[in-house]
Computed example of a mutant assay.
Amino acid sequence: MERPNPRLYEGYCDETPVHRLRERFGTTNVYGRNSRSILSPASGYIKAYDFTLNPYRGCQYGCSYCYAAAFSPNTRMRRDWGNWVIVKENAAELLRKELERWNKRHPERPPRIYMSTVTDPYQAIETREKLTQRLLEVMIEYCPVLVIQTRSPMVTRDIPLFQRLKKLRVNMSVPTGSETVRRDFEPQSPSLKARLHAIHKIAGAIDPDKGYVPKLSVTITPTLPTKPEDIDWFVERLRGIDRVVLQRFHDASARSLVAATREEAIALKEKYRWWYADEGTQYENFKAILKQRLPETEVLENQEGFGYD
Rank of each mutant, 00 (worst) to 15 (best):
G32C: 14
W274N: 02
W275H: 07
P175I: 00
K227V: 12
W233C: 02
K215F: 05
L216M: 04
L39I: 06
E279A: 07
R182D: 04
Q188W: 14
I86G: 00
E296A: 06
A92Q: 02
H250S: 15
T223P: 06
F286Y: 00
I113D: 02
R112C: 14
A68F: 00
S43A: 12
E10P: 03
K201R: 13
E304H: 06
S152C: 01
W274Y: 12
K130I: 05
V145N: 14
K130C: 12
D80H: 05
Q247L: 07
W233M: 10
Q303L: 07
Y56K: 07
I199N: 03
Q292R: 12
E279R: 09
E186K: 04
F249H: 07
V155D: 00
W84T: 00
Q188P: 08
Y212W: 04
H200P: 10
P153T: 05
R22D: 06
K287L: 09
I148P: 00
P190H: 01
L53P: 11
R164C: 07
Y142E: 04
V174E: 11
V138S: 00
P187N: 03
P187C: 03
Q282E: 10
D242C: 12
A48W: 11
K269T: 15
P214C: 00
V245R: 04
R20L: 11
R237I: 08
V235Y: 09
S152A: 05
G177F: 12
A265W: 02
L135Y: 04
R79N: 15
L168W: 05
R157M: 11
I289G: 01
A254Q: 08
W275C: 10
P208T: 11
L257E: 15
L192T: 14
D184M: 12
I241K: 09
K291W: 04
R101Q: 09
Y65Q: 04
A252M: 11
A277R: 14
R169V: 11
A252P: 14
Q292E: 15
I266F: 06
R79I: 07
G11E: 11
F234S: 01
N34C: 13
I241M: 01
K97P: 01
K97V: 07
F306M: 13
N34L: 13
D80E: 08
D209E: 13
P107D: 07
K47I: 14
W274M: 06
A91S: 07
E179W: 08
Y67G: 08
P55N: 01
